[in-house]
Computed example of a mutant assay.
Amino acid sequence: MQTTTLSQAAAAEFAPRTTYLNTSTCGLLPRRTVQAVKALVDENAAGVRVGAGDFDVVDAARAGFARLAGVGPDRVAAGGSVSVHVGLVAASLKPGTEVLAPEGEFSSVVSPFALRGDLRMRYVPLEKLADAVGPRTGLVAFSAVQSADGRVADLDAITSAAAAHGARTLLDASQSAGWFPLDAGAYDYTVTGGFKFLLCPRGASFLTVTEEAQATLPPLFVGWVAGEDPWSSTYGPVERLASTARALDEPPAFLAYHGAERSLALLAEIGIDALYAHATGLAARFREGLAELGHEPVPGTSAIVAVPGLGGRTPALAEAGIMVSDRAGNLRAAFHLYNSDADVDRALDALDALGG
């Protein structure tokens, strides 16, 4: 149930000193998140806490992500990075398996497969990904929203094509979860870095698996936290793994997860529908303004706007207090709950002043 309006959250939780349009690189931390991290740091420094953090908070963060992802908490594993989650999936594949991915896909999504050396990698343009799935395809690995230019994949077409050929799917939601509706249950695996649109401290990431897909993953990173009864699994080999996706947990970075629990709760209070409408509305305003200035942004409906050839303007914009990023030669701007029409207009005015 939505209990906090977007404008209330923006006013209460954020006070950026710049025009911050760089959430695709790293999201701003809400005040409540900062407070939670500081509280844990102080407790650890003072020696008043038993252990470095609270596993109940980790489970609360797991449940918070599960709500945003549309799955049960038992389908969510907690970790520290997307590349480790993807590496686990890569380790599960038989030699010679074909892995299909978009051209220019983010490195963490494809490197664990490509560097194995005994898998068949095939890359095609994003818009042809669904049509490229064939009988030899074992896995389709792709991002819901492309990091370099904000393009949104045709999710329904890709999942339908994979199902028709018996291929599994791995979706990276790092550039989408937090503003774009996510149905994690529609994919065999999803991986999500929490430090972008989920507004979590870096060090929190989430892997979702279907019950069937979980059985395919090898227990390569097993530690005591993955045991069915963790506190009875601290010495000697883990005798029984958790029956849920928690069997794939990494030992948590508690500072990150104490903050993540608060950030995910904030997003749930606002609601993904409101976040989507706000972020894509600002992005559309920015695209329209760019066109009026004579620039051609990558088309589409996305919270991430890329302008080919303008990546070199990033340093000058930073000097003007406009924080964007340079990716693959694109000027990349990303919009989230703490942005406003005024932010869009300041960015456009700054670009206009730079000329050319």
Rank of each mutant, 00 (worst) to 15 (best):
T169P: 00
L170P: 01
L171Q: 04
D172F: 10
A173Q: 05
A173R: 11
A173N: 14
S174D: 03
S174G: 07
S174H: 11
Q175P: 00
Q175E: 10
A177Y: 10
A177C: 14
G178S: 10
G178H: 09
G178P: 01
F180R: 15
P181N: 09
P181E: 11
D183Q: 14
D183Y: 08
A184F: 06
G185S: 07
G185N: 02
G185P: 01
G185E: 06
A186W: 02
A186H: 07
A186T: 14
A186S: 09
Y187N: 02
Y187S: 02
D188A: 12
Y189K: 07
Y189F: 15
V191P: 03
T192I: 12
F195Q: 08
K196A: 06
F197Y: 13
F197H: 13
L198G: 01
C200A: 06
C200F: 07
G203W: 09
F206Q: 02
F206P: 02
L207Q: 04
T208Q: 01
T208Y: 06
T208M: 07
T208D: 02
V209W: 03
T210C: 01
E211F: 03
E211D: 14
E212D: 10
A213I: 09
Q214G: 06
A215W: 02
A215M: 10
A215V: 08
A215L: 13
T216V: 11
L217I: 14
L217E: 03
L217A: 05
P218D: 00
P218V: 15
L220C: 06
F221S: 02
F221M: 04
V222N: 03
V222L: 06
V222S: 01
G223F: 09
W224G: 00
V225P: 00
A226W: 03
A226H: 03
A226E: 04
E228D: 11
E228G: 03
E228L: 14
E228P: 00
P230R: 13
W231Q: 10
S232W: 07
S232Y: 04
S233E: 11
Y235M: 12
G236I: 13
G236L: 12
G236Q: 04
P237R: 15
P237M: 15
E239S: 08
R240M: 06
L241H: 09
A242C: 07
A242F: 04
S243H: 13
S243Q: 13
T244L: 08
T244F: 10
A245T: 04
A245H: 09
A245L: 14
A247T: 07
A247R: 15
A247F: 01
L248Q: 12
L248E: 06
P251N: 09
P251I: 12
P251K: 09
F254A: 05
L255D: 02
A256P: 00
A256N: 05
Y257I: 11
G259V: 07
R262A: 11
R262F: 05
S263P: 01
S263Y: 13
S263F: 08
S263I: 08
L264P: 00
L264I: 15
L264W: 05
A265W: 08
A265D: 12
A265H: 13
A265L: 13
L267N: 08
A268T: 15
A268L: 14
A268I: 14
A268V: 13
E269N: 12
I272R: 11
I272C: 09
D273S: 10
A274Y: 04
